[in-house]
């Protein structure tokens, strides 16, 4: 049954957990990305499960440098390709939220500011899942992680998640979008657009993590969809600074439907945390108002 799955450029036999959202995301990305591409990934889940020596899943050139420097390494690769007169080969970074929101933010900002044609995709599973589900600055408000435990003095993550897409957009990049694995056609279209952009491009990709979120592996796609349907994760697309596309869910669901089935949020459904829940609902409502969803 072995054989080169050339359609994906990302082979099976990798070590991702069953039902891994990041693995689904990378397959969808790589299908759209084609073969004439060089991928850079910082340290993280993806690096760990896809790159063992003598067991790499990558079928395109793939570089894992360090945790905090993938955008700069991609810049160097692009500079070399340009010096060689190679305008065809694309450069893509696929990095987790820890590498993007936290440790690699400076490097990312440098990349987005320069004019190189590099697509950066942040696969966001909302925490340091590979090291044991610690909190990152992508961990949502109220979520329980191993470093935001629940206790008499704590309701979980107490800071609001950064608005990564707006941070990227503030660099005046020509293409910025959000996507999630439940909408593969939408994501693949966005990847193609990002790679065709004359300049840096950015995609924020939500990839649920069954282990870190406390959901069943088979529910990965379901929660990816619920994040969109509750307006907590709107699917949008900006070209040249203009909002050109919004996915409008038919009916916006209350955030409870998304939160209550995830173990990282079960503590929010107690009397004392009702206020936290209301705040999360307000965050979703703010998104609905911003993008004109009917509530």
């Amino acid at each position: 049954m072995e054989g080169k799955d050339r359609k994906n450029n990302f082979a099976p036999g990798h070590n991702a957990c069953p039902g891994c959202g990041a693995a689904i995301g990378v397959r969808q990305i790589m299908r759209a990305a084609g073969e004439n591409i060089i991928v850079v990934s910082p340290t993280g889940c993806l690096e760990t499960f896809s790159s063992p020596y003598g067991g790499s899943a990558w079928e395109v050139p793939w570089v894992h440098p360090l945790f905090e420097n993938a955008p700069a390494v991609a810049t160097g690769i692009k500079a070399a390709l340009k010096h060689q007169g190679n305008e065809e080969t694309r450069v893509l970074v696929i990095g987790g939220d820890g590498a993007t929101y936290d440790i690699g933010m400076g490097s990312l900002s440098g990349m987005l500011e320069r004019e190189d044609e590099i697509l950066y995709i942040c696969y966001d599973n909302e925490g340091y899942m590979n090291t044991g589900i610690q909190r990152s600055s992508a961990t949502p408000y109220g979520a329980k992680t191993s470093t935001t435990p629940i206790g008499v003095c704590s309701f979980g993550e107490s800071c609001r998640k950064k608005d990564l897409l707006e941070i990227a957009r503030a660099h005046h990049i020509k293409y910025a979008a959000s996507g999630t694995i439940a909408y593969p056609q939408d994501l693949m279209k966005k990847v193609k657009k990002g790679l065709a952009t004359k300049g840096p491009a950015f995609i924020h990709l939500l990839t649920p993590c069954s282990l870190g979120w406390g959901i069943e592996p088979e529910a990965t796609i379901e929660f990816s969809k619920l994040a969109v349907e509750t307006a907590l994760f709107p699917l949008v697309e900006y070209e040249n600074g203009e909002l050109v596309n919004i996915f409008i869910p038919k009916k916006i669901k209350p955030v409870d439907e998304y939160l209550k089935k995830q173990k990282r949020y079960t503590h929010l459904f107690s009397k004392e945390n009702a206020g936290v829940l209301a705040e999360i609902q307000e965050m979703a409502d703010a998104n609905s108002r911003k993008y004109g969803f009917r509530q």
Partner: peptide, 18 residues
């Protein structure tokens, strides 16, 4: 440089996990 060939994960029978 610990540089490895592409696509060698295909030898791994991850079906054993299920």
């Amino acid at each position: 440089g610990c540089i490895t060939e592409a696509g060698l994960s295909k030898k791994n029978r991850t079906g054993y996990w299920r």
